[in-house]
Design a protein around this nucleic acid. Sequence first.
DNA 1: TGGCATATACTCAAATTTGTATAGCCAAAA
DNA 2: TTTTGGCTATACAAATTTGAGTATATGCCA
Lengths: 181, 181
Amino acid sequence: MTAIRLLILGIVIKEPIHGYEIRRQLENWNAEQWANVAYGSIYSALSKMTQEGLLQVAQTEQIGARPARVVYEITEIGRAEFDRLLHEHWLEYKPMINPFQVAITFMNHLSRDELLKALRQRTHFLKAQLSNVDFYTDAKLSDVDTPRHIRENIRLMAAYAEAELTWIRSVIEQVERGELP
Amino acid sequence: MTAIRLLILGIVIKEPIHGYEIRRQLENWNAEQWANVAYGSIYSALSKMTQEGLLQVAQTEQIGARPARVVYEITEIGRAEFDRLLHEHWLEYKPMINPFQVAITFMNHLSRDELLKALRQRTHFLKAQLSNVDFYTDAKLSDVDTPRHIRENIRLMAAYAEAELTWIRSVIEQVERGELP
DNA sequence: TGGCATATACTCAAATTTGTATAGCCAAAA
DNA sequence: TTTTGGCTATACAAATTTGAGTATATGCCA
């Protein structure tokens, strides 16, 4: 929960903005690949943080008969909280939650063939990820809304993917030699 | 939520067991480092899954006047669900949720000095992680309750940590050269 | 100009998660 | 013998998250 708050505060701090636009920003950053951003929770977080005084409503824009846009802006308290959360995220070590490691835990419940198939499947996904990296590092750089250092985020993902590929290769070998599971 | 279910089903499938013992098993696997296992949610998941017919109560053991242990066992439906979830986790690519990447997103809000300090701090954590790896790969192997392939999980974590260390070194250099943020 | 896919924008009930509360047992120190 | 700290074991209210639901606008093609 502190993650979604930090993300929202960091977006609102730049300029007053409404929920849907925040969602688009997060999509633009591919945040769904490294954060829990169910889009419903943007709105919960916005009202909760408003209630707590971290944000305030700047204006509501009625466009036709659609739901009115609610534009939020950050308060001084909100700025302080952003700083606090940012430092917390930089200085504390919070584990990364990886569903694949849950799968690994029960490796021994798959047959040899299923396991090899799954490992190769995973290899595919990881390579697909990597091939996106070049695309993004080029394309996103020219996009004005995307800070240049967002590229570093993508590079880190690529590094994780490479590491996992190496690991998978070694596991495949062990499975083929009958040492695993 | 599917992750905690898979974990619990995979533990209960081996033998009838009560909630607290499940918790200890998860601690033994260092599950808090790669899964969301707030220990309260073990009990929620157990009763929910019982209600859904995936588990059933095998017995309740009253020891003195303490809360009675409720021992659960898996049902046929539960076995089927375990298989389904296991395959889902092996064959689908689910993103890993990484709070550090949220921090990276707002790298530019830290001063150069704060950033370098934070990066070095992170380096420390990662090296500490790595130094645990040798310990665990040795120690856990002799533990009967810990399947041998759990070691692979630890090796994967080490691979991620190494990858991140390399990434951090490159970022530090860029920051020192004034190219970031 | 009408129709269809896609985009805009938020709401809310239901499901899930969290963390604290409760409360007794046990071993060792004082 | 009493105190103290830590382990055993679950319950549950409160907070959070999810995702389907609602309803309108807009662009595009024929």
